[in-house]
């Protein structure tokens, strides 16, 4: 992809990221969002994260290539999710979970020669 095209995408990303960050704090410091909007938004983080996570774990090669669900033991991304999830859940540690996940994958590749 051309660097100019990437820059246009970055500027677009900047706009769509900044508006949701700024709008409530600048426009409705005294008013509140409508109840139905708050309810809808409250489901967005969980839904969007799961919508991104499941394909990453179940279809490891993602965008291109073999579009198949891989539940085999060879799917490192899937079973490395177990320790990552446990650290996030039991320790409530965001960065701890991320580091553990990356280390588990790195070590497993070293040991398995992947």
């Amino acid at each position: 992809m051309e660097q100019e095209t990437i820059l246009i995408a970055i500027l677009g990303m900047m706009a769509v990221t900044y508006v949701p960050r700024a709008l409530p704090v600048m426009a409705l410091s005294s008013r509140r969002l409508p109840q139905v909007v708050v309810a809808w938004l409250s489901y967005v983080p969980v839904a969007v994260l799961a919508a991104m996570l499941f394909p990453a774990l179940l279809i490891p090669e993602g965008q291109a290539g073999g579009q198949q669900i891989d539940l085999s033991l060879g799917n490192l991304f899937l079973w490395a999710a177990v320790p990552t999830l446990l650290v996030a859940w039991k320790r409530r540690s965001f960065f701890g979970a991320v580091i553990v996940g990356m280390v588990v994958v790195a070590v497993a590749r070293l040991v398995l020669g992947g």
Binding site: P45, V46, L49, A50, M52, L53, A56, L57, F77, A80, A81, T84, L85, V87, A88, W89, S93, F94, F95, A97, V98, V100, G101, M102, V104, V105
Partner: peptide, 12 residues
Amino acid sequence: YALPAMFIALLI
């Protein structure tokens, strides 16, 4: 694995 791990942590 940075991104999948980040999704897991944020989701949990």
